[in-house]
Amino acid sequence: MRKKTELLSRRAFVSAVGAAALAAPSVLSAQATEGVVRNVGSFRPHQWQDHFEKIGKGIILSDTNARFLQHWTADGEMRLYPTSVPLSEDLTRRGYTEVIDKKVAPGWGPTPAMRIRNPEWPAYIPGGDPLNPLGSHALYLSWQYYRIHGTQDTRKIGRRSSNGCIGLYNAQIAEVFGRTPIGTQVKLI
């Protein structure tokens, strides 16, 4: 008898949850009409004015928690891109920097800290090599060793997977690269 009672209460619970789920859209639309907006994800676009005094040559704002990058051109056009971000907090740098150089098919060499963590890694991989982690294009920041770059491994986008850099799909970094002059302001949050 006890098993039958537990089974009935589970069925009652599942039934109640199902009814609530069916009613949820009407509850959400009622909230929207009252001026309350609910966001179930962590994605929240930023306003450049909350971080910079002027747009200047352009702005790149990378949200390392939500894993997306916003890019504003000098004329105020804004685009969003999904990113990969550093593996851990100790590899994550936040704050203000700027684009100081740009390279197509950049070569890559691991930093001294990477060589200690991964002594089996090669000392250098030339640009264009399928094993090169910088992908097709790279924006070099004023912070030594930090880049916004493409990636050959598209599984990394949307994940904590880098050694400090911000990664984009190769097609998207090519777009950002073409729209970003040297001197573009950058902030990682």
Rank of each mutant, 00 (worst) to 15 (best):
M1C: 11
M1Q: 10
R2V: 14
R2D: 12
R2Y: 11
E6S: 11
E6W: 14
L7P: 00
S9P: 00
F13S: 08
F13R: 11
F13D: 06
A16L: 08
V17I: 08
A21R: 15
A23H: 02
L28I: 11
Q31N: 01
A32Q: 11
T33K: 15
T33W: 01
V36T: 12
V37T: 13
V37W: 14
R38F: 07
N39F: 04
N39D: 08
N39E: 14
G41N: 07
S42C: 03
P45E: 06
Q47C: 05
W48Y: 14
W48V: 07
H51I: 00
I55G: 04
N65H: 13
A66T: 03
A66W: 05
R67E: 02
Q70I: 10
H71L: 04
H71E: 10
G76M: 08
M78C: 13
L80D: 15
Y81M: 07
T83N: 05
T83R: 03
V85R: 06
P86D: 13
S88L: 05
S88P: 02
E89V: 02
L91Q: 11
T92R: 12
Y96W: 12
T97P: 00
V99C: 12
I100P: 00
K102A: 10
V104G: 03
P106S: 10
G107E: 03
W108T: 06
P110V: 13
P110R: 04
P112Q: 04
P112W: 06
A113G: 03
A113H: 11
M114H: 04
R115H: 07
R115C: 02
R117M: 12
R117C: 06
R117A: 15
R117I: 07
N118K: 15
E120K: 15
A123T: 15
Y124N: 06
Y124K: 15
P126C: 01
D129S: 13
D129W: 08
P130R: 12
N132S: 02
S136G: 07
S136F: 02
H137V: 01
H137E: 14
A138R: 02
Y140V: 15
S142I: 07
Q144S: 12
Y145R: 03
Y145P: 01
Y146C: 08
H149Y: 02
H149K: 07
G150H: 09
G150L: 11
T151H: 10
D153E: 12
D153A: 10
T154A: 14
K156M: 13
K156A: 15
R159G: 05
R159P: 02
R160F: 11
R160N: 11
S161I: 03
N163Q: 11
I166R: 00
I166Q: 00
Y169I: 02
Y169T: 01
A171D: 14
A174G: 08
A174V: 09
A174S: 13
V176F: 04
V176G: 09
F177C: 03
F177Q: 03
R179F: 03
T180H: 09
T180N: 05
P181C: 08
I182T: 12
T184K: 04
Q185L: 09
